[in-house]
Design a protein around this nucleic acid. Structure first.
Length: 578
RNA sequence: GCCGAUGUAGCUCAGCGGUAGAGCAACUCUUUCGUAAAGAGUAGGCCGUCGGUUCAAAUCCGACCAUCGGCUCCA
């Protein structure tokens, strides 16, 4: 429908109007770029003085006045020379012009009304009268580097939302507010999952008992799954000597992201930022025959990365986190099959276990700039071919992205989307063809000679921290029974039933159910309310009636009263579905 | 790290020059209760930290720390 194609034009036109409004206020402002984004638009400016959020309504008002003037948008092709004259006062535009000329692109400029001219490839409404004046809103101000590089000057970015109708705008704002209620930081607090302490430090989460129960439930499941899929578990320390990280190549490539060295009298020690080097030493501890391969070492390894303070965000970005890590050591002829199995494992976790149906893989390749990457082009090419082939065979959706590879090989990220559409990079997998040259990892082939080895790094559940953040938002805190920190709450109707409630609690614990007793001096209604807000899957109400019949009255989360039944019958309900 | 905003009791927030308040949570007492909030009372704060301005600072200014929204980065 025309409606859909038009919204982009409306958003783009609003970006121009925003630029006009800003120029009206700050005639000396320098213009960056003003593209359309998912729910609206933004425009970057170099401003003579900082802008406050309180200034946004005024800019909006100016934009509405401009809309009311029924201004005409008109575009024209311009010559490089003319472009340089027209935008002589706009250094960022001149930079773009220079680049476009180099790329031999046709330059176009768009005029809005008489006053405003912008270098722009087009996509506008014909007249501002087509823009609904009540369906956009300037939302926030943020800093953004010119052209996305921190080496460039930082500009002020103004974001706006824009829709076809006021109703759509309001609906979107409402949805954002709903999403905020699911924010893992909000629910993490309310469900008592994790916390942070200034004394411990930023980006270093503390897991409360409820959160730890969740971690343990996932980890126990992972141990079982990995045992079934042919992995062996290993464990390694959190620090290692500098030698190891020189060998791995982390020191030159990754040192900025590592916590600084601990200096001891036998040299420098570092907190590990990755588990691989340690695990490789386990592989190296004994000789391996071609018959032994593939060897799959799994571990829940805690790593520490000195992330920029401004990037820390709840559990999504921390400075210490525990990865669901494993390394698969295999021969070249095994790579494709192993990689395919890793993809199948992801599929199993996401679809079967967590009900995440919306996910895709992203193959990250090196940028044109080879300098940043450690490998030889030949090894890269081979590695990419092996991965791509496995990806195709998996039948799972994937995209390719340039310039985002790890320094030791191409990587495959799994992007997962939660029930509310938040997309997260959940898992990173790499094919490492440098382990032989860096660490001297080999195997003895049929001819008795040492042959080079491939290593697959995989982490389907990424880190506990990020994955749990995702799950909190995905389930809105209402975890399935097998994950719920507290699976059952026993609620005595009054203190008269406390004794029987304790008997029930004991019976549940004997069956390894994570159960709690609410012994507070409150009404039943209050106890139910408290338990429901804690998202506990099952509540067992026990009063004199239940005590007499040796039953429990079961209430299921969000479904309500299921009636009385024997405890054994109830226990069959709480078994995990798989 | 950079840009911007914010920082008051465990939590959510009010107060915004004359030395602090509410609701929930906690604790005590009363109540002994049948499927989403019983009633009363008590306690709890160096108003993020450190400086400055002022007769007087939670309130104004500065620095730092932390958090939030972005940028960059990333599990």
């Amino acid at each position: 429908m025309q409606k859909d194609s038009n919204i982009e034009n409306i958003r783009h036109s609003l970006a121009h109007l925003l630029a006009m409004a800003v120029l009206a206020r700050f005639p000396k402002a320098k213009l960056g770029i003003g593209p359309v984004i998912e729910h609206g638009f933004y425009y970057d400016f170099k401003l003579p003085k900082p802008l406050a959020p309180e200034d946004l309504p005024e800019l909006e008002k100016t934009m509405r006045e401009l809309i009311a003037q029924n201004l005409v948008f008109s575009g024209e092709k311009i010559t490089p020379q003319k472009a340089r004259t027209l935008f002589a006062a706009q250094p960022f535009k001149l930079e773009l012009i220079k680049e476009f000329i180099k790329e031999k692109k046709q330059l176009t400029a768009y005029r809005t009304g008489d006053a405003f001219l912008d270098l722009c490839k087009g996509g506008h409404v014909k007249n501002t009268s087509e823009i609904p004046a009540d369906a956009f809103k300037l939302t926030h101000i943020a800093g953004a580097y010119w052209r996305g590089s921190e080496k460039n000057p930082q500009l002020t970015r103004i974001y706006g939302l824009a829709f076809q109708t006021k109703e759509e705008l309001e609906k979107h704002i409402w949805q954002e507010e709903e999403a905020k209620k699911r924010d893992h930081r909000v629910l993490g607090e309310r469900l008592k999952l994790f916390t942070f302490a200034p004394e411990v430090g930023p980006g270093l989460p503390l897991w409360l008992p409820n959160g730890t129960a969740l971690r343990d439930a996932i980890e126990e499941r992972a141990k079982k799954v990995e045992a079934q899929w042919g992995y062996q578990r290993v464990a390694t320390p959190h620090i290692a000597k500098e030698d190891l990280f020189r060998m791995s190549g982390h020191i030159p490539y990754y040192a900025d992201s590592m916590f600084p060295a601990i200096q001891l009298d036998d040299g420098n020690y570092y907190l590990k930022a990755m588990n691989c080097p340690h695990t490789h030493m386990i592989y190296k501890a004994q000789p391996h025959s071609w018959r032994d391969l593939p060897i799959r070492y799994a571990e829940y390894g805690t790593v520490y990365r000195y992330e920029l303070s401004g990037t820390l965000a709840g559990l999504l970005r921390t400075r210490g986190f525990t990865q669901n890590d494993a390394h698969i050591y295999c021969r070249e002829d095994q790579v494709e099959k192993e990689f395919l199995n890793v993809m199948r494992l992801h599929e199993y976790w996401y679809k079967e276990v967590f009900g995440i149906t919306d996910f895709y893989m992203r193959l990250s390749l090196p940028a044109e700039d080879q300098k940043k990457y450690a490998g030889l082009p030949a090894g890269w090419k081979k590695a990419v071919e092996l991965i791509r082939s496995a990806m195709k065979k998996s039948g799972l959706p994937f995209v390719e992205a340039e310039g985002e590879a790890a320094f030791y090989g191409p990587k495959v990220d799994f992007q997962i989307k939660s029930a509310i559409g938040r997309e997260e990079s959940a898992s990173t997998n790499q094919l490492d063809f440098l382990a032989t040259s860096r660490f001297g990892l080999t195997y003895t082939d049929t001819d008795g000679k040492q042959k080079p080895l491939y290593v697959i790094h995989r982490a389907p559940l990424g880190s506990h921290e990020r994955f749990i953040a995702f799950l909190i938002e995905h389930y809105a805190g209402a975890f399935p029974v097998w994950l719920a920190p507290v699976q059952v709450a026993v609620l005595p109707v009054s203190e008269k039933s406390l004794g029987y409630a304790e008997t029930v609690l004991k019976a549940l614990k004997e069956k390894d159910v994570r159960a709690e007793l609410d012994a507070s001096n409150e009404t039943l209604g209050k106890k139910i309310r408290t338990a429901e807000t804690q998202k506990i899957p099952y509540l067992l109400v026990v009063g004199e009636r239940e005590q007499a019949s040796r039953n429990v009255a079961v209430r299921e989360r969000s479904k309500g009263d299921l009636g009385a039944m024997a405890l054994d019958q109830f226990l069959t309900l709480t078994r995990p579905p798989v």
